[in-house]
């Protein structure tokens, strides 16, 4: 099974082009016993190799269920999941060699063992020879700044260091795909930054495919080439991060700042005004930008001193909230 990736010519965030998607999910459905509705409902996703793919959704949306199915820890009710072309159910041994995973709410590694012992153990579990696992463990521990403390038991590490060991254990066999379920949850700013740098390095320099779930939208905006949003088990958006943001820019918000009080005039629908110190900020969404210019003209007619007019870009959190609060896409 061969996978080739390349960056297409052109500017901006490139899309990886690949002959075989690193992760391919088609018609995936999972209904737990006793449940009336599926936790994952006919989900189809294709993740090109070499991309960082953000898989987002509110709690209980189906993210972890999907990751567990990809990891072979949970059987799907129907549908197909392929890792580098290998069917997780039917070609389990080959599929298990395609990925490493850090699961949410889980220790992932043995706290009674040292970082070194953990990495050797997980390396052997993935089918590596002892010598190969040792060489790789050394490389990872040095890269993660844990080499000097490799013989200490992981239980004595800080939360950030423990998460680093979990990431290292997922990478021990140098898998082409890395599944990270909330990898930065509970980490302090510095540890979050370290993990994010690693994810960036994995994708940009090592060509790994990273599927990432997180509630931290800054992490997604900074790292993810592509984003899928899942709600109530259904994928309601699946596009590049830039596309997602630009799609929502079509409904852009505007902000007009004027000096002092707002003059007596009726604001357009969807607009509100609030006073901040000596300034009044009038903001709202418009379907046609001309409406904003009309508003500015009306303000000037009332002798208001317009300080600025700006287009407010939505960030990913706005987009995410808009998507998950929107009507269900049944």
């Amino acid at each position: 099974m061969s996978t080739q990736t390349q960056a297409p010519a052109g500017s901006g965030r490139p899309e990886a082009v690949t002959t075989t998607p690193a992760i391919e999910i088609s018609g995936l459905t999972k209904t737990y016993g006793g449940a009336d509705t599926p936790s994952v409902d006919n989900v189809s996703l294709s993740v090109p190799a070499g991309t960082v793919f953000g898989f987002l959704g509110p709690n209980g949306a189906g993210k972890t269920t999907t990751i567990k199915i990809l990891s072979g820890l949970l059987a799907a009710s129907s549908g197909k999941t392929l890792l580098n072309g290998y069917d997780v159910t039917r070609q389990r041994a080959a599929a298990m060699q395609q990925f490493g995973a850090v699961l949410e709410g889980s220790r992932n590694v043995y706290w009674t063992l040292s970082a070194w012992q953990n990495l050797l153990y997980f390396g052997r579990l993935k089918g590596m020879t002892a010598a190969h696992a040792a060489a790789r463990a050394e490389e990872l521990l040095k890269g993660l700044d844990l080499w000097e403390r490799r013989e200490e038991s992981v239980g004595g590490y800080s939360r950030g260091m423990q998460q680093k060991v979990a990431v290292a254990a997922a990478l021990i066999a140098d898998p082409p795909i890395v599944l990270l379920d909330e990898p930065t949850i509970g980490l302090d700013v510095e540890a979050t930054r370290t993990v994010m740098e690693w994810i960036r390095t994995l994708s940009r320099e090592r060509g790994k495919t990273v599927l990432l779930t997180t509630h931290q939208m800054n992490v997604v905006e900074e790292l993810c080439d592509r984003v899928a949003v899942i709600r109530k088990g259904k994928v309601i958006a699946d596009m590049s991060t830039d596309q997602l943001l630009s799609q929502f820019r079509e409904r852009d918000a505007y902000e007009v700042r004027i000096e002092g009080d707002l003059p007596e005039l009726s604001l357009p629908p969807n607009f509100t005004a609030r006073r901040v110190d000596d300034t009044t900020i009038v903001s709202g969404r418009v379907s046609d930008p001309q409406e904003v210019y009309t508003l500015v003209d009306r303000l000037r007619d009332q002798r208001a001193v317009v300080q600025s007019l700006a287009q407010v870009q939505p960030d990913l959190e706005d987009v995410f909230m808009g998507l998950i609060k929107g009507p269900a896409h049944d």
Partner: peptide
């Protein structure tokens, strides 16, 4: 919005099966 820097996607390692 802050976007990720353009990716330098390198070929993935040979797949072990």
């Amino acid at each position: 919005t802050s976007t990720a820097s353009p990716a330098v996607v390198r070929p993935v390692q040979p797949v072990r099966t």
